[in-house]
Computed example of a mutant assay.
Amino acid sequence: MKKQHGPAFKVDQIDLAECLVCKGSAVIKGVFHELACVHCNASGWVTAATGEALPLEVLVTQLSMRLRIVLQQVNQLCRPVTCGPESLYVQNNRRGAGGTNYTGD
């Protein structure tokens, strides 16, 4: 184990797994209504290695990191891919007056 003084410079991503008690839904079925799951702090996520709940400060950071990665993947998949003559009309070629798009029409 490496000796370290002070906080880490970079936050490491922790492997998360769905809570086995609430099956990732963050609530458990009570007699009359749903109750917040106390095993996972009502988040639906626990550490994959130990199965323990994360502290709320760490959980917020880890979920934010995961959300950022997923949003990047969604943006890459939703980016329109143009090819052929259509790409000349979609992309700016800066050949027109004042650096505008010139299509030759």
Rank of each mutant, 00 (worst) to 15 (best):
P7Y: 09
L88N: 10
V70D: 09
G30C: 05
N101S: 11
P85Q: 11
N75I: 08
L59Y: 06
L20C: 09
P7I: 10
E34M: 14
Q72A: 14
T50Y: 02
V70A: 12
D12K: 05
V70C: 13
V46T: 04
S43L: 00
K2A: 10
Q4W: 09
K2P: 06
V58H: 06
L56T: 14
L35K: 14
G99S: 04
S87R: 08
F32V: 03
E57V: 10
A17C: 07
E57N: 11
D15V: 01
Q73D: 06
N93A: 07
M65W: 02
F32W: 02
D15L: 06
A26S: 13
T103M: 11
K2D: 10
N41P: 05
T47Q: 06
H5L: 15
V90L: 09
R94A: 13
V90D: 03
L88H: 12
W45Y: 03
F9A: 15
N41M: 04
N75D: 12
S64L: 09
L16V: 04
V60P: 04
M1I: 10
H5R: 13
A49G: 08
A36G: 10
E86L: 15
A36S: 12
V27W: 12
T50H: 04
L56E: 14
N93T: 04
Q73N: 15
C22G: 04
L77K: 12
C40P: 04
L35D: 13
V70M: 13
G98I: 03
I69G: 07
H39T: 01
P55A: 05
L59N: 06
Y102I: 05
L35H: 14
C78Y: 13
N92H: 08
V46S: 03
A26D: 06
C37K: 01
V70N: 10
E86M: 15
E57R: 07
M65P: 00
A48T: 05
G99C: 02
T47Y: 02
L77F: 09
T50K: 00
Q4V: 10
V58C: 08
F32P: 03
G96Y: 08
D12R: 05
Q4H: 09
N75Q: 15
I28M: 12
E18Q: 08
V31T: 12
M65G: 00
A17L: 06
D12P: 02
N92M: 08
V38N: 14
A53W: 01
P7A: 11
L63I: 01
L88W: 08
A42E: 03
K2N: 10
V90E: 07
T82N: 12
K3A: 13
H33S: 14
